[in-house]
Design a protein around this nucleic acid. Structure first.
Lengths: 342, 342
DNA sequence: TTGTAGGCGTTATCAG
DNA sequence: CTGATAACGCCTACAA
């Protein structure tokens, strides 16, 4: 088992002091050493296979170039594309992510946050926050930069990167109205999540702006799960006035909605048009393919990652937050209105 | 900005030397200090909010308690459940994962491996290997323990955790034969991946064992993607003898197959029964819901994680590899044979 | 049982 | 421009 190559090794090889090697190899200040010497050091370093010890570096600089990423569950199709965006952007800047799953459990979230702090992460990316969270509680306040992704904390000054939920909902309602729909019901997302309330607000605002009569029926899901989509659909079918279109706060709810409708003998889109939100994987392969709003998930993650690295490195002129544009993706689950459901 | 609490701080608080504190706080040798003192140290440590510096620890012990995880793409639904299993198991043992995506690019894979090595990971979990890879090349040999997950390198002694692909294929073919199918075609996975060849072998062996006549038609996919499923189906439809069932090497191929069949006016399962492999998310919501083989993805990841930690910590009696049992999940995409397709 | 001292590999400060 | 030296926080013989 061979010892690792250290600064001292290459220093000895070149015949200089290790601090000189350290300077020569520091990419941030390239000219603190004569270029001839720098060249020799460069070569020796390569020849010996020198690699900077991140442990030594971290101990000295108190920086690990690691970012903690806290998400509800990597198994939920909504998150992998975001994480991929984060990892790609971080890699470009020499950082890595450590991701932790909370399953929406506050206790687990606390434990994970502590564990990440113990590991010395330079920053935290939070995709798990609720609208009333205080992500600056746990001593994170000045200790560690925090950015929230995909969700945000209301009334907080924590930077966030989210999608333009309102614009998405507006596009959906506009699309449905253009198809002749006037009786539109909705399944809202959990109201403790910013996506849930922002999308519901956006939906209601769009309905009002487009002159959809009265107040639309809305059932509120307790989570972004297919079964909740089913349950809410049953509720609407049982208690709401007839509707020809059903706007769902996300794709998984929409999938459940279609299942429930079918179970009741209602076909989508013939009897009821259904829309989702997110454009998650596979929804283009459903029967019918889902009309939805494409959220730039990869870009969202990448933006958040860049933002937190900027924060960490004290880059000037950094924006506090970002809201990314979305696109309506029209597929087979929406069609011109034909009949009314009772 | 307050300095972090170090061993020295709590030592000063208690009035002992920091090395005593270090001993007292070491969970592995709990009795190297008088229990009365240990108690006081414990309290002071908690009161001051002491947390061991992982940088200092790593520098001294040359162990980071980090595991590198190399996968093709976290965005492919096949991987998140495995990763979740890895992360859960690692967390239980005080480790974390750093995951890197390769997109199947050998160059990227090398870069990622180097980057992980530079970071000082204690071990490597590889979900990206091909059957001819030599995962022990890059100086990893004795340097770092390696375990492959979900895939394996043929003829190598690198420990692996995989599913019982042959049993899965046997279950599928048995099921189809029981439904009366005799003309069974298949879409095989990429033959540079162990899943691809193991499943194809399993399929052919099962056909032989069950006395399916002649050699079944097999189209080979170039990747586990829906479009490849479509392409292979077109090929089979155009060139193979009529078949009433189509066995696909994984769920995404099956999804593509159903799309292609439908495009040709063939309905699943009425005209052609289709099966997948993996039981990935959402396939139970397709039309028709997919009959497939459930692979214990979470367990597979967890097992691999435990295995590599055992390797790292030199746990005795460690198995070299594991093959996990699978289950057939019968859904709507398979039905009793009705007609023959030309 | 407890204290002492050395060193893990790096960066930063200060002289020369 | 280069060398010497002092931390950074921790573990671990070894000594008391």
């Amino acid at each position: 088992m061979k010892r690792r190559v250290t600064l001292k090794d290459v220093a000895d090889a070149v015949g200089v002091h290790l601090s000189t090697v350290s300077r020569a190899l520091d990419p941030s200040s390239p000219h603190r050493v004569s270029s001839e010497l720098a060249e020799r050091i460069e070569q020796a370093s390569r020849a010996l296979g020198y690699r900077k010890s991140s442990a030594g570096y971290s101990l000295k600089t108190n920086s690990t170039r690691m970012i903690g990423v806290i998400i509800p569950d990597i198994t939920d199709p909504a998150f992998p594309p975001i994480i991929r965006g984060i990892e790609d952007a971080l890699a470009r800047r020499g950082y890595v992510a450590i991701v932790a799953n909370t399953d929406g459990d506050a206790r687990r979230e606390r434990d994970m946050a502590m564990m990440l702090r113990d590991r010395g992460v330079d920053g935290l990316l939070l995709a798990s926050v609720e609208i009333t969270d205080d992500p600056s509680r746990e001593d994170w306040r000045d200790a560690t930069p925090v950015v929230t992704v995909n969700r945000q904390v209301f009334g907080s000054d924590v930077p966030s990167v989210i999608a333009d939920e309102a614009a998405g909902m507006d596009a959906i309602v506009t699309h449905l109205v253009a198809l002749g729909h006037r009786n539109i019901a909705a399944i809202a997302g959990p109201q403790h999540l910013s996506t849930g309330v922002l999308r519901q607000r956006g939906f209601l605002a769009a309905c009002a702006a487009l002159g959809i009569g009265g107040s639309p029926s809305v059932a509120v899901a307790r989570g972004y799960r297919e079964e909740e989509g089913e349950r809410c659909t049953e509720t609407l079918l049982a208690t709401a006035p007839p509707f020809t279109a059903l706007v769902c706060a996300n794709d998984r709810l929409a999938v459940g909605a279609i299942t429930a409708l079918r179970r009741r003998g209602l076909e989508c889109p013939d009897d009821v048009a259904v829309t989702g939100f997110n454009d998650m994987i596979m929804v283009d392969r459903l029967t019918p393919p889902l009309t939805t709003v494409r959220v730039p998930k990869h870009q969202m993650g990448a933006r958040a990652a860049d933002m937190i690295v900027d924060l960490i490195e004290g880059k000037p002129g950094l924006e506090r937050s970002a809201m990314l544009p979305v696109d309506l993706v029209v597929r087979g689950s929406t069609a011109r209105v034909r009949s009314t459901v009772g």
